[in-house]
Structure formats: structure tokens, C-alpha cells
Design a protein around this nucleic acid. Sequence first.
DNA 1: GACCAGTTGTATCGCACCGATACATCGGAG
DNA 2: CTCCGATGTATCGGTGCGATACAACTGGTC
Lengths: 195, 195
Amino acid sequence: MTKTDVLTLAILGILRDQPLHGYQIRKRLGAELGPFRALSYGSLYPCLRRMVEAGLIESAGEEPAGASPASSRRARIAYSLTDAGRTRLAEELASAGASSWDDDAFDVRFSLFAHTDAATRLRILEGRRSRLSERLEEVAEGLKRMHERHDAYTAELQRHGLEQVEREISWLDRLIENERSAPGGDNPGPTPTGH
Amino acid sequence: MTKTDVLTLAILGILRDQPLHGYQIRKRLGAELGPFRALSYGSLYPCLRRMVEAGLIESAGEEPAGASPASSRRARIAYSLTDAGRTRLAEELASAGASSWDDDAFDVRFSLFAHTDAATRLRILEGRRSRLSERLEEVAEGLKRMHERHDAYTAELQRHGLEQVEREISWLDRLIENERSAPGGDNPGPTPTGH
DNA sequence: GACCAGTTGTATCGCACCGATACATCGGAG
DNA sequence: CTCCGATGTATCGGTGCGATACAACTGGTC
């Protein structure tokens, strides 16, 4: 139970370091994961509500602070992690189940690698790799069995898809090798977490 | 009005040459568009129902044919295009609006290129190209502005995303050049539509 | 100082789609 | 003969998306 969905995880991750408004969460997430995967408010706000209900985050409704006119203060709601949220994030970051290398989950998981320990990183990368290998198999299979009933365009589409997957795999191979040869610390790379 | 959604278009396309059952539709579509984009029954059947209601397709409920026992005949429903459906498909294939190069529509549109005239093909490819160019811009922008607040992993994710888009664009460039230098017929390539 | 456009910000509604699931029949392998 | 996997139709709950509405602050321009 308590299956943490991807969106929830992403939000937990983005709130790890500072409290943020809904709007900022959306922007940050969009920036970190690329312009694809931009989540809409239609998913964000309901998810935030769910998380508040579950006690993972809490909302701080920025009070007027002082004897300002009356009521006109603009509504801004900053969300921050609760202890429960922080715990859940830690649990989630330590896990490496199949749900870590699903198509839609992997990116989010990867973007949190800086806060994931080395062993888990490696397991996720390998899991993702093997998932993509299966896929490669499938596509190659289909492409071979495609002798009959094929026009040039659908064939080209297949070929292109195949290449995409191959490329993705070799990207993972690079990362995996990198992980293996690295000191194994929690925070590799030249950039020291930013101060 | 009468906005044809992608799924509807895909089905119209797959039924162009022969009537098929829901199950077969799903398999074919999955095979043509790759293992990604495999649509689930949860979308397929409702869509088929909608299409029947709209008069685009009709269902032929394979009757027992003869004095077979009683009722045991397995339910199999073959769907075929109506004249309206055929017309709609033709309209859709002749159009080349922004909805032709959306992320989710392009593949389907492309897989129907064998039945699309040369001018439309070119326009769609170019539309897709320019859409991806915009995206490239965005990502590059974000990557540049990423000096502050970046760990090695999110940076790598960005870099990888950037490369993906670049590759996609050069794939399109190849296709576009190919289109331009080709005879301009409706059915290029060595494969003669299959007999 | 008046106006207008763009950004920040919260929020909801309908719709389409996915994943899981249930059920039934058929062909073949053990 | 029986079990398994493919074929086949169908629905349900949940969830994410796109569009949209509303509101206040920000900054530029005449």
C-alpha cells in the first residue's frame, strides 16, 4: 500500500531543499525534466491536495504579517515537507523496484540521483537497461517479421524507433560504466551540490 | 467541429484496406507504431463505439451462418469503414494543420504517408521540424541558464534530452531531403505497396 | 496618471486514456 | 483430457491533460 506515484515523488524531491508555491513547483519541474513532461495544473493541484491529506506536505498560507490594509493580500500558498514527507522521500530514494525504471518514472528517479546512494543508482540504471533491451528485442523482432505487408514509411518509422532505443541503451551503458569506475560516493561529478 | 482525434485517425487508417476486429486493430496498431504507443482496450472500445455512433465505421456481427446448435457462436465483431469514414480519412490525409505534427499525432500521420500526397507529406515533415526546433531552442536556453543550481545528474539529463531532439531533427532533415529529390509520386520507395 | 500587456498565482471542469480485471472460446501440447 | 496461451469483447476507477477563469502584482509607454 501507500504506493507513491511518480508525480508525488517528483514533488517530494523538488520540495526537499526549500518550500515552494504550486506555480514555482511547476516551473522547476518543467525546467529539470525538460519541456516535455511539463505537468499541468490539472494534475498538480489535485496531487498537492492529496499529499496534504496524506500528511506528506503542509501548506503555509503566507499571512499578511502586520497591520496591512485589510484583506487584499494576494493568496500564495507555500508547501513544505513534513517529517512524514521527508521520511517517505528517503524510503522512496532507497528503493529500486520495477517502478523505478518505468518509462514515466525513470526520468524523475534519475533527476534525484544526486540524493540517491551509489548502489541504488546502479541498480536502477541496470533495471532500466534491461527493460529497454526487452523492448529492443520486440522491435527488432517486428521489423524482421515485416517482410510482407510493409510500405516504405512504416518501415522507416520502425527503423527509427529501433535506433532510438539503441541510442538510449548506449547512453545507459556510458552512465553505468561511469558509476562503476567512480569512487562510489553519493555525490560524484565535478559540481559540488551547489552551495 | 468534428475534430478527429488521433486514435480515430489511426483506426480509420488501419481499416482502410480491410475490416478488422478490435483485437486485430490493437495488434496491428501496436506493430506499426512500435511497442510504445500500444493503445489499451480501455481506449479502443470506447473509441470504436464513438466512431460507430458518428457513422464513420459499421460493425458486422458475424452471424452463426446456418443452423448451428443454438447460441454458442463466439462473439466477433468486424468493423469496416463506411463511405463517410472513407471520406473523413481522405479529408484528414489531405490536411496538414498544426495537429499533424504534435508529439502524439505525428507518428500516426507518418505511418499513413503511403496514402498521403507528396506536397502534404513535405508540409508535415517541415511542420514537425520547426516544432522540434522551437523545443531545441528551449532546452538549449534552459541548459545555458543552468549555471547556478545544478547537480551533475540533472545536467546530464538535460544534455541527453538535447541530443535526442537534435537527432530527431536530423532524421527529419534526411526525410525532407529525400522527399524533395524524389520523383514526387504518391508512392515512393522500392516497395510497391505490397500486392 | 492612465492604460495595457505579461507574469505570477490558485483553482476547477470535462474528457480521454491507461492498467487492471473479468469473462468466454478456441487450438494445440503434454 | 486437461491445462495453457492466444483470441476476443467489455467495463471500471483513477489520473493526468488542456482549456479556462479569475486575481493581483510588475513594468513599460504615452
